[in-house]
Design a protein around this nucleic acid. Structure first.
Length: 299
DNA sequence: GATCGGGTCAGTGTTACTTCA
DNA sequence: GATGAAGTAACACTGACCCGA
């Protein structure tokens, strides 16, 4: 049986560019609560609180009030004909929020509450106290079944809704509402995960941009340095030596001499031609990820 | 008319913090 | 000063409702 804490509300995202976070599996389990402070997870409400059935509610302060108004009403219980036939006493609806409403909405809700009352009246006092709750909370089993059903299909057709409601002892409307809420909240969580992912992407790109800008600055500094300017070959242009008609390319470190002759070095004479190049600034590989000393490139 | 998504309300539980004996 | 119980504010969860598409 599925535990309520493990509702399988897991979302995943792929991080194709980042091996370390290649697959972010976000398990929205309550176990996280033991290692993570709630405030640090404010954007990811990962805590799956225990069901009200797990513990006696600490809201005993409401007990007397509830006993007065909700005597013996089990809002989890599917209404029966006998329920509706019995007791016409003034019992407040479990879902009643009349006191905070006004105007037409209040009237509508009053009507709804009356309808609800018609369904819920007449339950014995046996469950007094523990069932004192104004709002339905699904049991673990009910939640588990709904979760299982949601995994299979996140929408229900009328037949499925009816069957599920009958199986769980709930009204079809309750099942429908549960699925609507579940879809909405799943989507919200997914949006939060997506947002976090994009935020991380943005941070990475910003950092990469900063790094590249720095490299550009370093390269410009080197290029504008007159001491080395003449030793550089253009980055993208291929030049041909007019005398030997050989295409100048990246110099090779071969001690036997360069196979590709820099025309400028060629024209500068043998002495300069044989002078070793400190490094190739225009190498195809990205700029070396080691600091370049522009003032002393040979070092 | 039924259904869905989005927004919202309200009841409830949990946690962290404060106060007090 | 240390300690545990009680109170409380803040927050999160969740069932339910409303409204527009």
């Amino acid at each position: 049986m599925l535990e309520n804490q493990d509702l399988g509300l897991s979302l995943s995202l792929s991080f194709p560019e980042n091996k370390t976070t290649n697959s972010l599996q976000l398990n929205l389990f309550s176990s996280l609560a033991s290692t993570t402070s709630p405030s640090s997870l404010s954007h990811f409400n990962l805590f799956q609180r225990n069901s009200w059935t797990d513990s006696i509610p600490s809201s005993d302060r409401n007990l007397e009030t509830c006993r007065t108004f909700l005597k013996g009403i089990d809002v989890n219980r599917i209404p029966t004909i006998t329920d509706t036939e019995e007791e016409e006493g003034g019992v407040s609806s479990p879902n009643s929020t009349i006191s905070s409403l006004s105007g037409n909405k209040r009237n509508e809700r009053e009507i709804n509450c009356e309808e609800e009352l018609d369904c819920c009246r007449g339950i014995s006092d046996e469950e007094d106290g523990e069932t004192c709750r104004k709002k339905l909370r699904l049991t673990k089993d009910q939640s588990a079944v709904l979760e299982e059903s949601f995994k299979e299909h996140n929408t229900l057709n009328p037949k499925q809704k009816q069957a599920l409601a009958k199986r769980l002892g709930l009204r079809p409307r309750q099942v429908e509402v549960w699925f609507q809420n579940r879809r909405a909240r799943t989507k919200l969580k997914q949006t939060e995960v997506d947002c976090e992912f994009l935020k991380r992407c943005c941070e990475n790109l910003t950092e990469e941009n900063r790094r590249l800008q720095k490299e550009v600055q370093e390269l410009r500094a080197l290029k504008l340095s007159p001491q080395f300017y003449m030793q550089m070959t253009p980055p993208t242009t291929l030049t041909m030596c007019p005398s030997c008609e050989r295409v100048a390319g990246p110099p090779t470190p071969s001690p036997s001499g360069p196979t590709n002759v820099d025309p400028r070095a060629h024209q500068m004479g043998l002495a300069q031609q044989q002078r070793p190049m400190p490094f190739n600034l225009w190498a195809t590989s990205p700029v070396p990820h080691r600091p370049i000393n522009a003032l002393n490139p040979r070092s």
